[in-house]
Amino acid sequence: MPALFFYGTLRHLPLLETVVGHSLDGIALSEAGLPGYEIRWAKGQAFPLILPKDGSSAIGLLAEGLSDEDVARLDYYERVFGYDLIWVDLEQDGQMRRVQMFWPPESSYEAGPEFILSDWAATWGTTNCAAAKEVLLHRGQKTPEEVGAIYRMIHTRAAAQVLAQQETPVLGPSGRGLADLEVLSESYPYANFFALKEMQLRYRRFDGSMCPVVDRAAFMGSDAALVLPYDPVRDRVLLIEQFRMGPLARGDHGPWQLEPIAGRVDPGETPEACARREAAEEAGLDLKALKEIHLGYPSPGCDSEFFHIYLGLADLPDAATQIGGLASEQEDIKTHLMPLDRALEMLDTGQIRVTPLALALHWLARNRESLRRGA
């Protein structure tokens, strides 16, 4: 196989190993340059641009010794983003060499500052490795173009995995953790906006033995931030109402539900920043402060979603009600202002059926007086 030149994120060796599916032992790696080009950040994005520049040279990584299967995996991964394998002339040690590289599609992204691989790796390296792992699991089931259409959600799911890895471990009374199970295989039989992940695994029973191989599946969501806006001076809350697919799929008479403000935590975003962003997008609110209510799983038996639930202290005058949401996401959201006592009455009479909202209201009822005194 000819040598391959990488100018962008595949210079990050953990990502390159993830894509080819093995360590780089036996692969010769060296530095080379593509004359007449430079590498810059795509402004506001998690990847670089390669741009013409006279007198410059785009320095990258040259890999020799890759197998046909390695190149096939790399080609699948790069075509997810619209890249094509082409021939180029590189400069290395004063000599010109004919090699291959993956060339990006035309784009309208604005160029940012010089692309520094270590800066990218510090922010995006672990997330992109997790995303690449899922991308390659779709090989043989989806075309690169189909995976490209859902890559935003793949990246979001990967970011949730990174958040989980960064948390201080919270173990049950038995102390069992990842060391007490063995994953034998994993696949994605369905993936679109959401995904279904199947695993074959074994785990340690409470008697110390390992169970037989079992098949398990989980709905793959993402981390989400949920916030209940509360005005401690007026003693009122803001709830939102919108159409929800879950109740409809169950056959509920009321697919429109009252909820807290909520949204997915985007890659590179903190849950707190997500809560503030969603409050602005869904209800036009500028929150004064966030107070953590609970961090946890809504349904751990079958769902990977993880909720970061907050109380958002806010000014909620009568004019705070509106119809909002992002048109780009087909959101149609109506806000409702109500005294806290009214919301608690609705909870007691079963009119509130969204569990995170119930949890937040119970927390608020318990902490109401101290919050009002503080205000």
Rank of each mutant, 00 (worst) to 15 (best):
M1F: 08
P2N: 15
P2T: 15
G8W: 00
L10W: 04
L10D: 01
L13V: 01
V20G: 06
H22W: 04
H22M: 03
L24G: 08
G26F: 00
I27D: 00
S30Y: 01
E31T: 15
G33K: 13
P48T: 08
L49Q: 11
L49H: 10
L51W: 05
K53D: 03
G60W: 00
L61S: 11
A63C: 02
D70P: 01
A72M: 06
A72R: 12
A72Q: 14
V80L: 09
F81W: 09
Y83E: 05
D84Y: 09
D84E: 15
L85H: 14
L90K: 12
G94D: 08
Q95W: 12
V99H: 13
Q100L: 02
M101N: 05
M101L: 13
P104L: 15
P105N: 07
A111W: 00
F115A: 12
L117H: 03
S118G: 07
A121N: 02
G125F: 02
A130P: 02
A132W: 01
L137S: 09
T143S: 15
T143V: 02
P144K: 07
P144G: 05
I150C: 10
Y151N: 06
R152G: 11
R152L: 10
R152S: 14
A160Y: 00
L163E: 08
Q165D: 11
L181E: 08
N192Y: 04
N192D: 04
K197G: 07
F206W: 14
D207S: 01
V213R: 14
R216M: 15
A224G: 07
P229F: 03
P232G: 05
R234H: 11
D235L: 11
D235P: 08
L239T: 03
I240C: 07
M245E: 13
R264N: 09
G268I: 04
P271Y: 05
P271I: 03
A273E: 08
C274K: 04
A275K: 13
A279H: 07
E281K: 13
E282Y: 05
E282W: 01
K288C: 08
G296P: 07
P298W: 05
C302T: 14
G312P: 01
A320G: 10
Q322W: 08
I323E: 14
G324C: 12
G325S: 04
L326K: 15
S328M: 11
Q330I: 03
T335E: 09
P339E: 05
D348G: 12
G350K: 13
V354P: 01
L359F: 08
R372V: 10
R372A: 08
R373P: 05
